[in-house]
Structure formats: structure tokens, C-alpha cells
Design a binder for these strands. Structure first.
Length: 270
DNA sequence: CGCCAGGACGCCC
DNA sequence: GGGCGTCATGGC
């Protein structure tokens, strides 16, 4: 990755990034594609930070209205620019199915998201579809001026007061998560550094957090790349292509591989 | 209308 | 420990 400053924008060159692949693959829910220009442009947020980013052509991007300081302190890390995805994909491509998945959506990067935002987002995601997940998170953030609520703010709510979200049975889970994080009984910072099994158990102490949601929080919100969320789509991949188990040499980066496979199998069925 | 969704819980055995 | 009904809501 390299970047140059051009007026109020940052121009980024990174062959292993594609905005559609990365921002619309089900790992983050607050990015919207804007149709206002001839570029592929997304506007979105990460906790309380907003960004408009365009893909000019393959591998070239404009981070609009962004200072170098903001770019380096926020977005460089968020887009995981420190990681060499070419090397990862080279490793993955020794496997036939993963090779196809990487060719299909080679521009996926694992976003380094916020753990609290991820926890709430993926509690909402359970037994739900992506358009509706986006809608619920939209209504939530809209209630706080397009910012993601803090645990303190959300801890003041009740399942009834969250009725405007139309999140159904998940509202009580959101309240429990907010209460635990705000009270300190769940320490997301400590969990992020804990041994993986201990981290899983701590997350699953939250009501509404089971194996799948815990893996998502670990992977997307804590960048624990060995975490491997198994949803209905990945179950199909495992049954269809890996009846004898997932390749062992991928284990340390299984979560990133999972990201390519998820996107691949979902779009294969169209 | 019915089926499904980036599942988890409670209960049963 | 595994199997199954239930849980809101709305996309398709």
C-alpha cells in the first residue's frame, strides 16, 4: 500500500482492496453505496467516524476529505493496510475451493472494527437477514445523531424503549450486553487479549451471544483471525467442499479464509 | 401466502 | 451431550 496527499483527499494504491468486496460482504453494516457519481463510492461510519471513499479503478482509491493524521490514526488500521493479503491469498490458493473463492472476490479485506459496535451488531444479526440488520442498526444510530451509541447510553434503555428498532426478541439481548459492558462485568478490552477459549466463554456469558456471534465479535471486532464463524452458508461450504474437515494449514487464518468462502458461496447461488 | 435469514435459548431426553 | 420448538420481523 502507498498513499499520496492531494488537496483535502488521500489517494491510496492497494491492489488487494475492492470496496464492493470489502464493504458489502456482511462483515460491516453501516456502509452505503452512493450512486451520485460514476465511481464506486461508499459512505459509512466506524463508531463515530465518518468516511466517504471512492474506487477510481482497480486498486486505486480516494479517501475524501481526510487529513493524513485521520487517515493514519483511523482508516489505515480499519482497512487493515498493515497486512499483506497477497501473501495470505497465495497461501489459501493451495486449496482448490479457496482458490476459486479468492479469484471470485480477491478484494476482500478483514476490517478491524470496534469490539463494542461488533458485539451489538452481531447480536442483532442472529436469525436475521443482512438488509434488515442494516435497517435496525440504521435506526439505532439515527437515534444518536448517526453515531453508534456507547454502552453507557444503551444501558439506559429497556426492551420496551428499544421498540423503535423493531429488533424483535433481540432487544432484551441488547440490553443485557449493554448492561454487562457498562457495568464492567464484561471487559471487552481484556477479552480481546485473552486466550481464545477463555475469550469465547466470556462473550457467551452475555445473553443472546452463542458460538456464532462470539466468533464474529472475536474475528471482526478483535481481529482474532483464528476465529471461525459458522453460519448457515459456511455450513453448506463445509458440507459440500470439506466433508473431511477444513485444511489444517489455514487454521491460524481460518477467519480470513472464511470471509472469502462466505462471499463466494452466497453469490454462487444467485 | 410460506420460507428463510451471518442463531440462541429452554426444555426434553 | 444432542435434538427440537420457539422466538419477532420483514425480505423475497
Amino acid at each position: 500500500m502507498d498513499y499520496t496527499i492531494k488537496g483535502c483527499d488521500i489517494i491510496v494504491h492497494e491492489p488487494d482492496l475492492d470496496l464492493d468486496d470489502t464493504l458489502d460482504c456482511g462483515q460491516a453494516f453501516r456502509w452505503r453505496k452512493t450512486e451520485s457519481d460514476h465511481f464506486c463510492t461508499y459512505t459509512g461510519s466506524f463508531v463515530n467516524d465518518r468516511l466517504t471513499v471512492s474506487q477510481v479503478r482497480k486498486g486505486e482509491f480516494i479517501f475524501h476529505n481526510t487529513t493524513e493524521a485521520d487517515f493514519l490514526s483511523k482508516w489505515y488500521g480499519y482497512f487493515d493496510f498493515d497486512t499483506d493479503y497477497s501473501e495470505l491469498k497465495r497461501c489459501f490458493s493451495e486449496d482448490e475451493t479457496l482458490s476459486k473463492a479468492c479469484s471470485f472476490a480477491g478484494g476482500i479485506r478483514l476490517l478491524r472494527q470496534d469490539s463494542w459496535e461488533c458485539l451489538i451488531s452481531f447480536i442483532i444479526s442472529q436469525n436475521n437477514n443482512i438488509p434488515r440488520i442494516k435497517g435496525i442498526i440504521d435506526r439505532l444510530c439515527c437515534n444518536y445523531g448517526d453515531n453508534f451509541p456507547t454502552a453507557e447510553q444503551l444501558a439506559q434503555e429497556t426492551p420496551d424503549s428499544l421498540g423503535y428498532l423493531r429488533s424483535g426478541f433481540r432487544a432484551k439481548y441488547l440490553c443485557d450486553g449493554a448492561y454487562r459492558v457498562h457495568s464492567g462485568s464484561t471487559d471487552l478490552t481484556a477479552i480481546a487479549e485473552a486466550p481464545i477459549e477463555k475469550a469465547r466463554a466470556s462473550l457467551k456469558a452475555i445473553k443472546g451471544v452463542g458460538p456464532k456471534v462470539a466468533e464474529c465479535v472475536l474475528l471482526y471486532g478483535m481481529h482474532r483471525v483464528e476465529a471461525f464463524p459458522i453460519d448457515v452458508w459456511i455450513k453448506r461450504v463445509l458440507a459440500e467442499y470439506y466433508p473431511d474437515g477444513f485444511p489444517d494449514y489455514i487454521r491460524d487464518n481460518a477467519g480470513i479464509a472464511q470471509q472469502y468462502l462466505f462471499h463466494y458461496i452466497r453469490n454462487l447461488k444467485d
